[in-house]
Design a protein around this nucleic acid. Structure first.
Lengths: 263, 263
DNA sequence: TTACAATGCGTAAATTCTACGCAATAATCT
DNA sequence: AGATTATTGCGTAGAATTTACGCATTGTAA
């Protein structure tokens, strides 16, 4: 929604195209060079940051909706996207009053005041997804109602996000850390060919702890999760590291066998 | 809903009390003596079995709704109940036609035909929960629209459940098997004091594989997850096994430390 | 050429996992 | 009462894995 007209149409006719009472919120994790960041946006007139989100089209599957919303925010398609929990307990989601206020300051930008029984004012549960991207590749073009956006290191996220979005991010992070042992997370955050230091740094960053470089390599190689190539990369004034690539066949086979990563 | 009147009220006024487009389905796993079963119900006029489920009250949190629905089906409260995924992709959920047919044969029992735009005919996403109970303790009292119910061994579940319920059960099972290493699952399925053979058999059943009795004991004891008591239980013509209890403090501490079970 | 910083590869010790052996126990059978 | 039987409690040797490093190699810059 990039124009005033689109927003107005959404407010007045959105309920015909989208399911009410239900939204999708995306914790978009951006990784680059030892930093793990999250994309936050600030809607017009609001003090606090929020996660990017959207509604589910009536003729769209849930997965399609999640990918569409993610693409609308990042301009990227085919990203790694994973549902992790549905939120419907928070007092801020049950308590209608606060919701109306925050929504109304936002929609005042298009001159609309939402009545308490407007579909955007009603109680809404949120399905949480997390996505992984290289945030340098992402071009964020804020929508009409979004005043500002930022990539924040996960350690620096303010405690006062909108609604229960702090809880959503925390759960997303926990899930990501659990999934890193069971899914080729790196496959979605690294170029097709990457160096060992690169993937090593990725794991250290996501898990927030030091991992011995040499044992890390041994494990990934022994399990057959990555494959060493004949090429090397030139990096500054140091020894050229070899390039590696994921062996996805072996990856899924290892998972079926029950052999699981751990560090 | 145990009377014709309650059902009629639900059909005609349910949309005022419940959120549309969204339901909760419960995979209720019942364990007893080396058997893992699931509670299935069959609605009036329907050929296939389905999972017990229900809708979310407008003034109820999601968790409250899940517990209420579970209690309505099992007459038990305070059970272990865990959300695991939200389903919104299945063709049977998108395709309105099939939904109407199955619903209508059910509601014909109270002489109602649902129109295509009735709230019960609309597209509905489902939030999946799984619960753990000792199925011998459960008193199932089928609701008015439920013709039949059964406890089926998870291995014997028919391939043609209603909607995407096969998929839901499979995902519930996978989640349960993953969670058994990270949560005191046994705490919710065993009496406060239990014997080693009892908890051993529970793990073997859920994981569908043999676990060495002696190593199993060693591991649980070493990690401090269970505590041996001074009491023993009299069992038939054999040596009396000691009783054990869970050490929940140690359990959560072990989890934080990252020490995780595995067999 | 030398110094330096980073990578690739190996090895020994510590720890954990796995596969059993076997004694102890509580009935039941003779 | 003593032998029998099925089951539980506990221990130990060997295999396998994890952990903690040592050190040579490499590409560039001084």
């Amino acid at each position: 929604m990039n124009t005033r007209e689109e927003v107005l149409d959404f407010v007045h006719h959105g309920a015909e195209r989208f399911l009410p009472h239900l939204s999708i919120d995306c914790a978009i994790f951006g990784y680059h060079d030892h930093d793990l960041k999250t994309l936050l946006i600030r809607h017009h007139g609001q003090e606090n940051w929020s996660l990017p989100g959207g509604y589910i089209g009536r003729h769209e599957t849930l997965t399609e909706a999640a990918h569409r919303i993610l693409a609308e925010k990042t301009q990227l398609t085919g990203l790694f996207l994973q549902q992790f929990y549905t939120f419907g307990d928070s007092a801020t989601r049950m308590n209608r009053i606060k919701t109306e206020q925050t929504h109304n300051t936002t929609y005042s930008k298009v001159g609309v005041t939402l009545s308490p029984d407007h579909w955007l004012s009603e109680r809404t549960l949120s399905i949480g997804y997390y996505a992984l991207v290289d945030y340098l590749q992402v071009v964020v073009t804020p929508e009409f109602l979004v005043d500002d956006y930022c990539w924040l290191n996960v350690a620096d996220i303010p405690r006062e996000l909108v609604y229960d979005h702090n809880e959503i991010i925390q759960k997303a992070l926990l899930t990501l850390r659990a999934h890193i042992f069971q899914q080729p997370i790196g496959y979605n955050l690294l170029p097709d060919k990457f160096t060992l230091p690169e993937i090593h740094s990725l794991y250290e960053t996501i898990l927030c702890k030091q991992i011995d470089r040499r044992n890390f390599r041994k494990k990934l190689l022994t399990l057959g999760l990555i494959r060493q190539l004949d090429e090397q990369r030139k990096i500054g004034p140091h020894r050229s590291p070899f390039l590696y690539e994921f062996d996805l066949d072996n990856y899924s086979r290892a998972l079926e066998d029950g052999s699981i990563l751990s560090f």
